[in-house]
């Protein structure tokens, strides 16, 4: 079963092609990492897939349904949610209320029990009644992830969930994502190569908006172009 199929996706800003003819396919339950140097178009790709930006060309098919022209909130209701590289939560309400809002957004109902379940899933059970603005960085990143999870989306687009984290917090996210594997389809954009190679079923490498390689982690690790453009010689062995 194909969860996401992307064909010929294109986006330019002025004269710059940020995403150039990208093809991508994610099987159901797959964890697919997208790596590449800064400015490769990874975040733009997530913007296009989530509906925050409109593609100039190409198609996006979610679970057999063409969503290329759908607004962001419609895609969420069809089971596609994203997280943000720069934490974007609701700081003035509690952690639980944050998640309840995400549950409500996707389902239309204010279901606190489900919100509480999601709270446990991201390990924030003890902070339920604290204001989201009072959380530490690592906790905020987990809440950020939790908002996407709480929509109940089958396909998650995660934009650098480990950004700015220390090794301990990053390890928690790796555990969290391992637990999610198979249950949800995940497109993971991440710079932490240890995490990527540990988690990913397949990896796509983006450079200057183009896919230069796509395949199993072992293939990508050995791929000469990927090594030259991004991994360098210190790629994890």
């Amino acid at each position: 079963m194909t969860m996401l199929r992307v064909g010929g996706l294109q986006k330019h800003f002025g004269g710059v092609l940020a995403v150039d003819d990208v093809d991508l396919e994610l099987a159901e339950g797959e964890l697919h990492a997208v790596i590449g140097p800064n400015g490769a178009g990874k975040t733009t790709l997530i913007h296009l897939l989530s509906g925050a930006l409109k593609a100039d060309a190409g198609v996006i098919v979610l679970d057999g349904r063409d969503v290329t022209r759908l607004a962001m909130h419609r895609r969420v209701r069809l089971g596609l949610a994203r997280s943000y590289q720069i934490t974007s939560v609701f700081p003035n309400i509690t952690v639980l209320e944050n998640l309840a809002l995400a549950v409500q957004g996707a389902s239309g109902r204010d279901d606190r029990d489900r919100a509480r379940t999601e709270l446990g899933a991201v390990g924030l059970g003890a902070r339920a009644d604290d204001l989201a603005g009072a959380l530490a960085h690592g906790e905020r990143r987990r809440l950020e992830l939790g908002l996407a999870l709480a929509t109940g989306a089958r396909l998650l687009l995660l934009d650098e969930p480990m950004a700015g984290m220390g090794p301990e917090e990053a390890a928690r996210i790796v555990d969290l994502l391992s637990a999610l594997k198979r249950k949800r389809t995940i497109l993971l954009v991440e710079h932490d190569m240890d995490a990527v190679f540990r988690l990913a079923d397949r990896i796509t490498t983006l450079v200057d908006g183009r896919v230069i390689a796509s395949g199993a982690p072992e293939e990508i690790r050995r791929h000469p172009e990927v090594r030259r453009a991004y991994l360098g010689e210190e790629a994890p062995q």
Binding site: A71, A81, S88, G105
Partner: peptide, 15 residues
């Protein structure tokens, strides 16, 4: 929620 963070509200499914 829209008042505090409209973009995020769209991203969790609100019209």
């Amino acid at each position: 929620g829209i008042r505090d963070n409209e973009t995020r509200m769209e991203a969790i499914g609100f019209a």
